[in-house]
Design a binder for these strands. Structure first.
Lengths: 166, 166
DNA sequence: TTGCGCGCTGATACACTGTAACATCATGCG
DNA sequence: CGCATGATGTTACAGTGTATCAGCGCGCAA
């Protein structure tokens, strides 16, 4: 069994995020699906991907705005809709916020979000075993799933190792 | 007005909701913990427990209001805070809504919410296996959990059996 | 009994999250 | 060019949740 994909960065709360990587993947996806990877969508993704913590839509709008340039929240929402539909960002329901997707899987891989209540960072992992068990549980209940969310709040390894450093 | 009680909800997805049961359990819990099970809290729980579908705070406020009696949403929120803290209702993050807890477990039993996108009902189940696997996954990630949510959206067995009944 | 503390509720205001509706702009295409 | 389509800008608004302060009820101590 292989220890899951490349989250080497999981060591730290500020697990370094690579906007370039996310952007490159987004470009590839959009090209493959013949979708427009517009400036706004790129900017939104870049902002989200540059943070280890989830950002609210209004946060993003604020970061994209500046003197003389104002980005309305509604535009951000539209971009986020596009990005989530294409698996490039995820919505964290328990926070009403968004993070960039660290993997390539679009869906159905037992995705788990680990939200640190101390440093606020989000780590993303997967567990085929959980997915498997969940599938069995749902089948037993006669339930046909179409989407699922699994979010865990607690303390990340880094914060446990050196509490309250920030 | 809203569709009160009967229209669909109970029709097929889940027949049995026992406000009395939830109320009795709430009384027991409050007595055991020396907490006040006030009128408002009781009313809120009763409304929530009477529905198979999750209710928003404003829905609850509306149902509790009537000619000459107005219950503000903020009061409902406070009651809901109390009820959730004591494991009597659960918040459904993906819906911004609340359902009464059907079990006695307060937390940590692999709780899974099954939300039917057709009839809107919520079913609650548990899976020790999922809980177990999740614990292992979290341990491997060096993450110490304090709370978790697992919500699945899809179609419930009843709706699969006879789709689009109403 | 009164006075006080404390928790619950009422009420207003406000912040945050998300959507509807419509105008505008760019692009591609016959 | 004229038109269709999709993305964005803009305003307004609905839905969700919180802050704050005031009043109320109830137990408890003096």
């Amino acid at each position: 069994m292989h220890d899951h994909a490349g989250t080497h960065a999981e060591a730290g709360c500020h697990g370094h995020h690579r906007p370039e990587e996310a952007l490159a993947r987004a470009e590839a996806v959009c090209r493959a699906r013949d979708l427009q990877f517009t400036r706004l969508r790129r900017d939104v993704l870049e902002v989200v991907a540059s943070q280890a913590r989830p950002l609210g839509a209004y946060d993003i709008a604020e970061r994209l705005s500046g003197p003389g340039k104002r980005v309305a929240a509604v535009s951000v929402y539209r971009a986020l809709d596009f990005l989530t539909e294409n698996g490039l960002v995820h919505r964290i329901a328990s926070r009403n916020a968004f993070v960039s997707c660290g993997h390539t899987h679009t869906d159905g891989a037992g995705l788990v979000f680990l939200i640190c209540r101390n440093c606020g960072s989000i780590d993303e992992t997967t567990s085929p075993e959980i997915e498997d068990q969940l599938g069995r549980t749902l089948a037993k209940a006669g339930f046909k799933p179409s989407s699922r969310i699994l979010e865990v709040e607690g303390e990340c390894g880094a914060c446990l190792g050196r509490p309250a450093e920030d």
